[in-house]
Computed example of a mutant assay.
Amino acid sequence: MKTKPFLSLEDVKLIANAAEAEALRNNWAVSIAIVDDGGHLLWFQRLDGAAPISSEIAPAKARTAAVGRRESKGYEDMINQGRVSFLSAPTLAGMLEGGVPIVVDGHVVGAVGVSGVKSSEDAQIARAGIAALG
C-alpha cells in the first residue's frame, strides 16, 4: 500500500496565518479558503471589507486547484484561448486565477483559494500561505 502526506490542522493554520499576513501587508480585503486533496473545506476566513461574493469564489478556486491538480489559472487560460467548452467541466466552478495547489513530495495534498483583489494578487496571497510550509 502506498502512503502520502496530508495537511494537519497545524499546517492549515500556518498557511492561513501566512496568507492573511500577506493580504494585510498589502491592505487587501480578501477571502481565503484552504481545502484538502479532495476539495473539502478545511479553513475559511473573510477579512474585513472583503466583498460577500468572495466567500463563494475563494472556496471554488481552491476546490478547482485541488481536484484539478493544477493552478486554477490554467483553466482560465484555456478558456481565454478559445476552449470555451471547458466552461461545462463538472465540479470546476472556480476557473479563475487565485487557486493554487499545495504540493508535498510530489503529492497534491490540498489547495488555497483567494478572492477579493486582482487575480494575480489573489494568487500571490495563496502562494505566500503555501510558502509558510517550508
Rank of each mutant, 00 (worst) to 15 (best):
A123K: 12
S55C: 02
T91M: 10
V117K: 13
R127S: 07
E56N: 07
S119R: 15
G74V: 01
A93N: 14
R69W: 02
G129K: 08
L87M: 14
A111P: 12
E97F: 02
V104P: 01
I125F: 03
S115A: 15
V109I: 15
G98T: 06
D122F: 03
V117I: 08
L87N: 13
I53P: 00
G116F: 07
Q81C: 01
S85V: 05
R70F: 00
V67D: 01
G94I: 04
S72Y: 04
S54R: 01
V103T: 13
M95V: 11
G106Q: 10
E97L: 10
G82Q: 04
S115K: 04
A66S: 15
G113N: 05
S119E: 15
G113F: 04
A111M: 11
G98W: 05
P59G: 02
S119M: 11
A89L: 15
A111T: 11
I53A: 13
G116Q: 09
E97P: 02
S88M: 12
A123E: 15
E76K: 14
K73Y: 10
M95T: 14
E76L: 07
S115N: 10
V67I: 15
M95E: 03
A93Q: 12
V84W: 00
T64G: 06
G68Q: 06
E71L: 00
Q81P: 00
G116L: 09
S72F: 04
E71Y: 00
G74I: 00
V112S: 10
I125L: 04
S85T: 08
V84N: 04
Q81N: 14
L96W: 11
T64E: 09
G106V: 08
G110F: 12
G110D: 13
A60V: 01
V103L: 07
A111F: 11
G113S: 06
M78E: 14
G98F: 06
V84P: 00
V100A: 12
M95P: 02
I57N: 08
M95C: 04
D122R: 03
G99L: 03
K61F: 09
N80L: 13
A128E: 14
L96P: 00
G110N: 13
V67S: 01
E71M: 03
V108P: 00
V117F: 07
A66V: 07
D122C: 05
K73C: 01
I102K: 06
P90R: 05
A89E: 14
V109P: 11
P59I: 02
E121R: 13
I57H: 07
D77S: 05
V84L: 05
V117D: 15
S72R: 04
N80W: 00
G94T: 05
E121C: 03
H107V: 11
Q81L: 03
K73L: 14
E97N: 13
V108S: 02
A65S: 15
I125S: 05
G129H: 12
A128D: 09
A111I: 11
V100D: 07
F86K: 09
A65M: 10
A58M: 12
